[in-house]
Design a protein around this nucleic acid. Structure first.
Lengths: 141, 141
DNA sequence: TGAACGATTTAGATTATATCTAATGTGATA
DNA sequence: TATCACATTAGATATAATCTAAATCGTTCA
């Protein structure tokens, strides 16, 4: 993990590199398991207890707005966060709610007829089903 | 709106056609604007005030499980619901959070190498950007 | 240096969303 | 009619996220 690189990417997006913001970003880069805000808050605070819940949420919001982090909404569960490294799609497990990365491949754009006057920022492909852990228990429930 | 058809589709999925459940389903079929649970509860109750919040949520859960309704999670906002009629994709507005239907087209499946031991149920394509209403105000954040 | 100002952080309250509980009601069937 | 599973209810509770107002930090620049 290159501390300098994190600092540069924060500042390149017009965000100061504060200790709390750095900690959130570094945690997301080390943990690609798509943690929730609560998990990030807890983990960051365990290392250095000078950080409040509000700051974690504020920083996550800022990082998402800056385009450095992606937020993934999951039905009925807390949102999950993901440092944008390599491009990838997401697989969401119906059963345990975990979010996993899926190899990237190009998605066909919608025909402009369908788009109308809307302005498209991105296309996202979400796969749903049972993850490797939950697949064997597929029948139950 | 064919009341008999709704009744049949509920019963075909093993769900009793109760007045409350019928009302939720009928409302979703009439309103394709992807209402939130709170909006559905309010609307259904305005017509016939014998319905509780819990029942609305229970029925939405049952309808989603039965595959008659789709739930769309939106970051930072309440989930939205959508009777599954014609197949379609979704466009979510970054600005106002509204969910709109987009003409359906086939999505390439992931290579089985990427899928591994996961069991795929569905692929969902989500477009993001600014909707027709919000596009003109594009500059102002 | 230090005054000033905007950005950031904080603890805790608040809001928003969704689920749970325990009691009650309903309808099909025997 | 008695029974049983399914449904519903009001309100409490849980969970997720945001807001508030005060304090602090960093940077700029006189």
């Amino acid at each position: 993990m290159d501390a300098e690189a994190i600092k540069r990417s924060l500042e390149g997006s017009g965000l100061r590199c504060t200790p709390q913001r750095y900690a959130v970003m570094a945690f997301l880069m080390e943990h690609t398991r798509h943690p929730t805000a609560a998990e990030i808050f807890e983990a960051v605070n365990r290392v250095d207890p000078r950080s409040s819940r509000a700051t974690t949420y504020n920083n996550l919001r800022d990082l998402v707005q800056a385009g450095l982090v992606r937020e993934v909404a999951v039905e009925g569960r807390a949102a999950r966060f993901d440092a944008k490294g390599m491009r990838h799609h997401h697989f969401i497990c119906d059963r345990c709610g975990n979010v996993e990365d899926m190899e990237w491949y190009d998605v066909p754009r919608p025909p402009s007829r369908a788009l109308g006057k809307r302005i498209l920022r991105e296309c996202e492909l979400i796969f749903r089903g049972h993850c490797t852990k939950c697949a064997p228990r597929h029948a139950s429930r």
